[in-house]
Design a protein around this nucleic acid. Structure first.
Lengths: 303, 303
DNA sequence: CATACTCTCTGACCTTAGTCAGGTAATTGC
DNA sequence: GCAATTACCTGACTAAGGTCAGAGAGTATG
């Protein structure tokens, strides 16, 4: 069976099975829109209606109507914000919290109903396969985007990168004394900066220097701890290689610190070979390079 | 993470990801209800509206309306049944077939969009994990039911069982000369007959004889070729063991033919040990028995 | 032949999930 | 202080999905 065919079968089976049960278990209690809102408000503290709306990406009028319905049923309290009385805040009442627990229980019941007919071994296999699917679907929802290194998300990544190295390297890490004093080197036409986003949040980055008359160079490859294991670093790496090749480079190189074992391992398994130091980066212990194939750039189209 | 928690995460992630894309890719073309109907009608031959409706489990008025919409767009032709002019039949026009191909393509595009951001290795892992999830969710939707051996579904299974053995055994198989001339032996109180159903279709069966003063005996264990690999035989077996134990038996036994290797393997791995022949079943080469634990019956409740 | 039953269709109705265009009150910027 | 902006609300509207109660045509049965 082809991969596309397998994915289609999966979509059909899972959509039907989970969908039907979803309706049966969760649908009874409360319309989906209200349930979603109730869930998003959460059981602690008050929230701006504005931000809840942004998170769910719903129309303001629609949310207003949903809130009226929840308010009518005594599940939430909507009050003006003390500082800015245009803004409204919303919090759950006790009844609201109870309702949310109920949704929770139904969600558990749904999960249990999937597991129940299986024996212990099958259940183990089901849950680990589910974890795998979930992980890979999450990975496939990550988008890569070229951003200016001054963009807030880029700055966020670079800062996180520095903070992490600070803790990881013996003797700490000071970006200013590293060989990339000027982020402008990662701005076209001298280079570029790639940011990976998951659900809008930046979760990784990688920079590419494209010096004239010298091989392209990869800098600042970072993946947020929460997004590791998704193959994101490898994806950033190969995206940069592709762009370097498109720019005319036939070699790409990089340096790394011995503390970054996972990175070193990634470079080796991605076809990089260790070479003598090609710069005097104070934080580097290993230098790598990779010859880019001149052939047509590999593209991951559908099979 | 607990298993229930993992299943919930899966439901959330997959429902969102697949759901959103589903809407984006498939939603554009045609309302979901119409698309479903179009799909169910299929691209060949004519179908009773009645049976299509039964398969989708929809209201008669609703289907009628959907058909009017499809008819208006020139996708289907609805005609009275030649034999019974109350019944209407429906078939796709060329335009209908084209529309169906379009839905197909969109479904492919959806699948491709999930695979596209992944590299080859990740794609392999995703599709095999999806196959596993699909398989196990299918398994979990199979229901077991005690039926009278004369019930049409039971008869269907017994006939399929006989046909299969006929082809498999050297020298064929004649149920009349096998040691179960009378299906009444599988009817309470002398025994029982279990049928497994998937989406209403019978896909497996197993009979239990409960002779007074002798160990319980399992007969006619069969799983349809299309439903193999779901752990169904094991489930039927352990369900019968449980019922035998509940009936007071502390030993259950069975015989089998050497051609049924998978079955023999199942029995061994389920705790059966080979014993000398305890009957003179002409088709048997191996005889097994299993001592049932006196303890509380294992139940697969949610973790 | 009358009656009951079957299958389909229609009209009336409902809920959910949204969208869109103002309108109002509060706040910010000048 | 006044205009623009922001956050929210309301009313009007749409489309989809679906339910229910007959009506009508056709068929089976006594």
């Amino acid at each position: 069976m082809g991969q596309v065919e397998q994915v289609r079968r999966f979509n059909r089976t899972v959509a039907e099975r989970v969908g039907v049960l979803h309706d049966r278990y969760l649908g009874g209690a409360r319309p989906y829109g209200q349930a979603r809102l109730l869930w998003e408000i959460g059981d602690e503290g008050t929230h701006d209606v504005r931000s809840v709306r942004a998170r769910l990406d719903l129309d303001s009028g629609y949310v207003s109507r949903l809130l009226r319905a929840l308010e009518r049923d005594g599940l939430v309290v909507v009050e003006p914000h003390p500082d800015d009385r245009r803004v409204r805040t919303v919090r759950l009442t006790d009844a609201g919290r109870a309702e949310r627990v109920l949704l929770d229980d139904r969600s558990d019941a749904l999960a249990a109903s999937l597991l129940d007919p299986l024996d212990a071994r099958q259940r183990d296999r089901l849950t680990s396969a589910m974890a795998e699917v979930e992980r890979l679907l999450t990975a496939s929802v990550v988008s890569l985007e070229v951003l200016d290194p001054d963009h807030p998300d880029a700055v966020y990544c670079l800062r996180a990168y520095a903070t992490e190295l600070q803790e990881l390297f013996e003797g700490g890490f000071d970006p200013a004394s590293s060989l990339l004093p000027d982020p402008a080197e990662l701005r076209p036409p001298r280079g570029l900066f790639l940011v990976a986003r998951l659900h809008g949040e930046p979760v990784g980055c990688a920079g590419l220097k494209l010096p004239t008359g010298a091989p392209a160079e990869i800098k600042r490859l970072w993946v947020s701890p929460g997004a590791r294991g998704l193959g994101l670093a490898r994806r950033l790496l190969s995206e940069l290689e592709e762009r370097a090749a498109r720019d005319g480079s036939d070699v790409v190189r990089l340096d790394t610190n011995k503390a970054l074992e996972a990175a070193t391992c990634l470079y080796r398994s991605s076809g990089y070979t260790e070479v003598p130091a090609f710069n005097d980066e104070p934080y580097a212990h290993h230098w790598f390079e990779k010859r880019l194939t001149a052939g047509p750039t590999q593209h991951h189209g559908a099979a």
